[in-house]
Computed example of a mutant assay.
Amino acid sequence: MARDQKDKPDLDAAYALETPDDNRQLYGKWAETYDQSFAQQMDYQLPAHVARVFAELGGVGPVLDVGAGTGLLAEALRPISDVKIDALDLSADMLAVAGRKGIYRDLIVGDLTKALPIEAGQYGGVVSSGTFTHGHVGPEVLDQLLTFASTGALFVLSVNAEHFEARGFEAKFKALGDKIDDFHIRTVSIYGAGTDEAHSKDKGHLAVFRRM
């Protein structure tokens, strides 16, 4: 796909991203309008699903929100769980929008595919919605995420259903069998009834587990 098409901020452009720089450029342009032009218009339900499952299973903080973007997951979690939340995202522009909402303890700009300056074992929960999908990071980052979590920490990570087997997430979770416990999958609709027809059947797998 031509760069000018990938630079246009919309869902198809996001799915076509190939590099961290592509991500920074697209989401930098999209940050200020993301909540309205994407989340509201597409009836984006994935952050709410992740938040609900984390709260239902008694998740505790502090929580690391991976690929936090503009803070949609934390906004959904705040009314149902009294936990401190830190935001991690590649895009400083998206985090700037999230920061204005006053829902995060800390904002961390960082690339998941590289070593991050996050203290090992400090998080009681790790959540993510919309990060493990087309054009974004793959299962190779799960090892580093586990190091950030304390023993027994609850993970609720959304993975695009089409992406789950094709990109190796299924195999990776099996390989992590001696490091995680209570692993199971919950399948949810990514978008609600208000989305467009092209994405009305899109599904996400919620990978739910605890760090051993």
Score class of each variant (00 low, 15 high):
35 D>V: 13
55 A>P: 05
43 D>Y: 11
129 S>E: 08
108 I>L: 13
197 E>D: 15
203 K>H: 11
112 L>A: 04
206 L>I: 13
211 R>D: 00
103 I>M: 12
198 A>G: 02
161 A>N: 07
1 M>S: 15
176 L>S: 09
9 P>R: 05
167 R>H: 12
99 G>F: 06
49 H>Y: 08
104 Y>R: 04
146 L>I: 13
15 Y>I: 07
9 P>K: 06
157 L>Y: 02
203 K>V: 12
174 K>D: 14
96 A>M: 15
183 F>D: 02
210 R>Y: 03
184 H>R: 14
190 I>V: 15
125 G>R: 02
137 V>W: 00
163 H>T: 09
90 L>D: 08
3 R>D: 13
188 V>G: 08
127 V>A: 07
168 G>N: 06
46 L>F: 05
75 E>M: 14
181 D>R: 15
41 Q>F: 15
91 S>F: 05
89 D>F: 03
192 G>K: 00
174 K>N: 11
112 L>D: 02
28 G>W: 01
138 G>E: 11
163 H>D: 12
133 T>E: 11
160 N>R: 10
135 G>M: 10
78 R>Y: 06
22 D>F: 02
123 Y>K: 05
28 G>P: 07
194 G>W: 08
78 R>P: 06
123 Y>R: 00
160 N>G: 12
192 G>H: 00
33 T>Q: 13
160 N>I: 15
53 V>D: 03
44 Y>I: 13
124 G>S: 09
84 K>W: 06
171 A>I: 11
195 T>E: 01
72 L>S: 05
153 A>E: 03
73 L>S: 04
187 T>Q: 11
67 G>F: 01
7 D>L: 15
52 R>L: 15
192 G>M: 10
